[in-house]
Amino acid sequence: MIDSFQRMRWIAANTFLEAVRQKFFNAVLLLSVALVVGSVFFQQFDFGSSELKFISDFGFGAVFLFGSILSIVLSTQLFFNELDNRTALTLLAKPIHKLEFLAGKFFGAYALMFCFTFSLSLVLAGLLFWRETVLMGQLAEGFDRGRLIRYGDVFVFGFIQWIKFGVIAAMTLFVGSFAQTNLFTIVVSFFGLVICQLQYIARDAYLGMAAGAGRWLVQGLSWLFPNFQLFNIGDQLVYPVEEPLALVTLGLITAYGLVYSVAFVLLAQLNFRSREL
């Protein structure tokens, strides 16, 4: 078992190194940082202390959007590069299980998403800190109870998004396990992402529907796809919410994401084990 983890670890480390050197990752990271930093543009509008809300919304949006794109595209590239270049052949000719290979690819991509999310959270927290300090000097009255931003929540949001990106990466690997091309994997994964984002509507809709094919369809959608709205909690963190989100809720969301990540990697193995290379 320990050997198995060691092998996954080495493959993950190699995958991470390969990914970090990819131009796509570096470009997206730079763009995301630029977008977050660009939110200082909001000071032009003189929103007062509410400028912090705009900055945090924008920053969260950048993490959400670019993180989702990166999860899908990078996971696809890292997986298919191995198949197309036949490095997968060399690796799978070694005494490793296909599941170890898949899990290694997943963990490598997941580690990269951690770096991305953490970097962006750091930039966002720094930007909020700077603007809040400036605004506190300008508008003492709005800050009579001290700072308004809960900085820990910035990293909590980043953590929850990272958990979601893990589910996205695992879903992408699952699609890639039966897909023949990069493009198909990316397109289908993006559709999957959109459905997961909107799945909650199907759930809520089926409760009010009369029995029939329509109800079965929406019920099926709500069963097959994880609920990504659970991870969309940016508006309940940081500012200007009074009460932080309960730890229990965060724990449940984390557990939900981790279980789905593992499940999709195992489902990927279901296809990949019989895939002929």
Binding site: Q6, N14, L17, E18, T87, L89, T90, L91
Partner: peptide, 27 residues
């Protein structure tokens, strides 16, 4: 041990890093 036809390896690793990686994977 296996050498594939027209081998392609991870371009950004050095030769030594590459062999070391496979050594680790092989236990």
């Amino acid at each position: 041990g296996f050498l594939p036809e027209a081998p392609y390896f991870y371009r950004d690793l050095s030769g030594r890093e590459l062999v070391r990686f496979y050594a680790r994977v092989c236990g």
